[in-house]
Structures are given as C-alpha cells and as structure tokens.
C-alpha cells in the first residue's frame, strides 16, 4: 500500500521553519482525515530520528525500535491532540517519546514508585477545559456572541451549538455527526478564533 515512499529524508534541504509548517500540516491531515500518506511522510521524517534518540538513551536496538513503534503509534492514534499553537510537531513528538522512554526505564529499573510519565507530563491528556478557558478569558456573553454567531459557516455553528449550548462533549458531537473527533476539534477552534476576531472588530 505504501510502497514507493522513499525513506530518505527529503526535508533536509528545506529550512526548518518551512519544515515544521509542512510537518504540522501533515499532522492536521492525519487528525482530520486519517490520511495515510500524510502519516507515512511523518513516519519517514521522525522514525530514524526517534531511533537515533532511543539508541543514545537506551542503547538497545530492540528497545529502541519498540520506542519508535510506540511513539509513532501514539502519533497515529492521538493526532487530534496536537495543537500547533502550543508548539511544533517535533516538540510534541519528542515529549511523547520522552514519556514512553521514562516509563520504559522505570520498568527496567524495577522502580516501585507509582509515579508515571502521565502524572509528570500530561502530554496526551485530553484538555477539555481548553476551549472553555478562551470564552472565560474573553468574558464573552452569549448575547454579545449571538449576533456574530450567524456569520459563522453552518458546519461550525452546528458544532459550537452542540458543545456550548447543549453542553455535549466533543466526542459526543463527533459520534452524533459521524465525523472524526479531530474535525470537531478543529471546527471548534476555527469557530472560536473567528468569533474572537469578529469581537475584536466589533469593539
């Protein structure tokens, strides 16, 4: 299926900012459309890097490959949690790998402490509070937003209404509308950004 995607690093000649942008775009494609070519491109970029990192840290080929596989599996399964506003794909993927390595070494050293990487660095925890915080921060009342709401694209209106008026979770909305969770998240985000802009113009 994915034969023919070259493994060598084609990004090398591109400067790092453009590279980060294109990786970011690929992650969004994975999150929103479950795009396999986009994932393959990310994989080809990161797998050799993760392996080199893991070999240096753990020094064991089998464990290094396990770390590559576990990290890239999380990227595929949790891509909807990537938030470009918070950092680059490299940083996000590094933190996933760092967490996996931390737990791996804990297990190898047979540490009894019940403190795992999720407690220390909640990289892959869903942050439902995120979107709510924006509206609290901005102290936006429903009436203020009401008129502007009509200017949003229909698809975004549906999602915003379900979450903020009906109080549904993003997962519930995704199931109900039969669209990927990543799409619900990005629609919510886009709608909130749009509303924020409109409010700024409004003032």
């Amino acid at each position: 299926m994915l034969v023919g995607i070259p493994l060598e690093d084609r990004q090398k000649t591109v400067n790092s900012k453009e590279c980060a942008d294109s990786l970011s775009a690929q992650l969004v494609l994975v999150a929103e459309q479950r795009s396999k070519p986009a994932f393959a491109a990310l994989f080809n970029h990161f797998a050799p890097r993760l392996r080199s990192y893991a070999l240096k840290q753990i020094g064991n080929e089998a464990l290094a490959m396990e770390l590559v596989q576990d990290t890239m599996s999380k990227v595929w399964q949790k891509s909807h949690l990537f938030n470009a506003d918070k950092g680059s794909p490299s940083t996000w993927i590094f933190t996933i790998a760092r967490n996996i390595r931390f737990d791996m070494l804990r297990k190898l050293q047979n540490r009894k402490e019940d403190i795992c990487s999720d407690d220390l660095w909640p990289v892959l925890c869903e942050q439902t509070a995120d979107v709510n915080e924006i509206s609290i921060d901005e102290k936006v009342t429903l009436e203020q937003v009401g008129g502007l709401f009509a200017n949003l694209p229909r698809k975004q209106q549906v999602v915003i209404e379900a979450i903020y008026i009906d109080g549904k979770s993003q997962q519930e909305v995704a199931t109900e509308l039969d669209i990927p969770l990543g799409t619900v998240k990005s629609r919510t985000r886009l709608a909130l950004i749009r509303l924020k802009e409109m409010l700024k113009d409004h003032d």
């Binding site: 994915l2 034969v3 080809n44 599996s73 969770l181």
Partner: peptide
Amino acid sequence: YSSMIESILQLPELPQ
C-alpha cells in the same frame, strides 16, 4: 520500517 508503518496504520483512532 515498512512492516512497522503497516501495523501502526491498522490501529484505530483512540476515543477521547
């Protein structure tokens, strides 16, 4: 890595 990619792509998206 091709077999690794293949096996990862079989994994479902994790629910929230």
